[in-house]
């Protein structure tokens, strides 16, 4: 059975676990580095990126996860998770995992009163729009040449993929639509099982 680790230092990690479990995948909460053994993939949930980044650093999760991702472990980040994955944060903050060649802008849609829901087109998961929930969401300002843009909202990049790294600005874990989690498992994690291990 596939086993996915969900970084569980702060934020909506249980919702990701629930969704992954419903898709028949085994999950484990990652709070310390000993939780990183035998994982087929990693999920970085939404939450507060400064809290998550700090706690990951404090408990030695940054280096080992970066190394795993560099060696091919698939990773999927939502909202704060996307910020944690970016190589550059436009406000000049120190990047965290820095595994994706993108520049991310935090809270770029405004404060909480500007948070919104919208139907989003994302071709890789099919033609039916995705019910996207944006909460104090970041967006991607610019991408490196190997990064594929999967979706934009009003011209802003909100979903990207670079090889086995997937990052989105919004929160599929707060909806009942599991197509993006399915995409991660079937198109990214599954193929990596043969190549890496």
């Amino acid at each position: 059975m596939m086993k996915i680790g969900v970084v569980a230092v702060q934020g909506a990690f249980r919702e990701h676990q629930r969704m992954l479990n419903q898709l028949g995948v085994d999950t484990i909460e990652i709070k310390r580095s000993q939780h990183l053994e035998n994982l087929n993939g990693i999920v970085l949930p939404g939450g507060e990126s400064t809290s998550i980044g700090k706690l990951m650093r404090e408990y030695g999760l940054i280096e080992p996860i970066r190394e795993m991702v560099q060696q091919g472990t698939p990773i999927f980040g939502t909202c704060a998770g996307m910020i944690v994955m970016a190589k550059t944060i436009s406000s000049g903050e120190e990047p965290h995992l820095a595994v994706m060649d993108v520049t991310v802008s935090r809270n770029s849609f405004g404060r909480q009163k500007d948070s919104f829901e919208a139907d989003l087109d994302m071709d890789v998961i099919g033609s039916t729009p995705f019910p996207a929930v944006f909460i104090r969401a970041p967006h991607i300002e610019s991408v490196g040449e190997n990064v594929r843009v999967l979706s934009r909202y009003q011209g802003r990049i909100v979903a990207v993929q670079e090889k086995h790294c997937l990052a989105i600005s919004f929160h599929p874990e707060l909806t009942d639509d599991s197509r993006i989690h399915q995409y991660f498992l079937e198109k990214i994690v599954q193929p990596s099982l043969q190549t890496v291990r």
Partner: peptide
């Protein structure tokens, strides 16, 4: 409702 409650979901564990 989803955006308002979702904001609180992001605070969890904090």
């Amino acid at each position: 409702e989803r955006v308002k409650r979702g904001m609180a979901e992001m605070q969890k564990g904090g």
